[in-house]
């Protein structure tokens, strides 16, 4: 029994080992690898937008209105003659900024609330989890809409609005993990040598909850992409002339039948981005979560 458990190191034992095994496992998972490549490409595009976009995203050319895809405009032009490919490239920047900001806000908040609730239990747990349930019971898009409407439309408001509704699943997950970890022998041993609650939470319990939270956050990125695009579509996200993908679809709606490329190109961008996040999240779960077995 000892031999088998020993030869296979536990996942997440250290950052380098994890990274190494992560890429090792990803190579065996072509779909996850493609997804990761797609996301890396997207981030590069977002960073390099000023240099790789063939045109300025706001350069209007009324002589080139609603041109179909051609050599000059690979994805055609919109109703103001703006190059759609350039707008998509600049839009990647907006999408990435939204996704990363929301994740950076939601991850720590969800982890903190969940771990605190799970570790202390009792009344602290009851209060924190009821708050979580209340937020969870709101349809997230509606709450985001109300919030964006109240604070005024804009990218910043969209980010705050999405963050407000995105933390409860993370908190629940972290709580479930903390409930398991707080009963382990190594936490009992730490109590015996007088480790303080703060120390137990930050140095013993939280690190054990991080892998599953990371997986969940990655899967959440797909939802965030969609919610951000939805808000943009409804006019409550990034404001024109910012090349936000959802807003571009909204604008292209009117020409859907005759000039399909205006709405379809940003649609594909959203589709592939959220698909990539989903696929990478799934692959991450296979690598980081030992309880989740591949079928």
């Amino acid at each position: 029994m000892n031999g088998t458990t020993l030869s296979r190191p536990r996942p997440m034992a250290n950052a380098w080992g994890t990274l190494h095994s992560f890429f090792g496992e990803l190579r065996r998972e072509p779909l996850g690898f493609i997804g990761l490549m797609l996301i890396v490409a997207l981030i590069l595009v977002a960073i390099l937008a000023p240099w790789i976009a063939p045109y300025s995203p706001s350069r209007q050319s009324l002589s080139e209105v609603l041109q179909p895809p051609s050599v000059a405009h690979w994805m055609g032009t919109d109703e103001f003659g703006r190059d759609i490919l350039s707008r998509l490239i600049w839009g990647a920047q907006i999408t990435m900024r939204t996704v990363l900001s929301v994740t950076a806000i939601v991850g720590p908040i969800g982890l903190l609330i969940g771990v605190t609730a799970g570790y202390f239990g009792g009344r602290v747990d009851a209060v924190l989890m009821r708050i979580t349930d209340i937020v969870l019971s709101f349809p997230s898009l509606i709450l985001a809409l109300a919030f964006a409407a109240a604070l005024g439309a804009g990218l910043g408001t969209a980010i705050i609005a999405i963050s407000l509704t995105a933390w409860p699943p993370i908190a629940r997950l972290a709580r479930a993990e903390a409930l398991i970890v707080r009963n382990t022998d190594y936490v009992a041993a730490a109590r015996l040598y007088g480790a303080s609650n703060l120390r137990l939470l930050t140095l013993y319990i939280a690190p054990m909850c991080i892998p599953s939270v990371v997986v969940r956050l990655t899967l959440n990125m797909a939802t965030i992409t969609l919610t951000a695009a939805s808000l943009g579509f409804l006019g409550l996200g990034a404001q024109p002339p910012m090349p936000e993908w959802g807003a571009m679809i909204s604008a292209g709606r009117r020409f859907m039948l005759d000039q399909w490329w205006v709405a379809v190109m940003p649609g594909f961008a959203i589709l592939f981005t959220s698909l990539a996040f989903n696929v990478v999240g799934d692959a991450l779960r296979d690598v980081l979560d030992p309880r989740h077995t591949k079928n």
């Binding site: 458990t5 536990r10 997440m12 034992a13 250290n14 382990t184 022998d185 190594y186 009992a188 041993a189 730490a190 015996l192 040598y193 007088g194 013993y204 690190p207 054990m208």
Partner: peptide, 22 residues
């Protein structure tokens, strides 16, 4: 208290569960 805890320490049954894996 810490001093009281220091009077007695414990060794657990499962050595695979009693050390923090990270």
């Amino acid at each position: 208290t810490k001093d009281q805890l220091r009077c007695a320490q414990m060794v657990f049954q499962d050595p695979f569960a009693s050390l923090h894996p990270r």
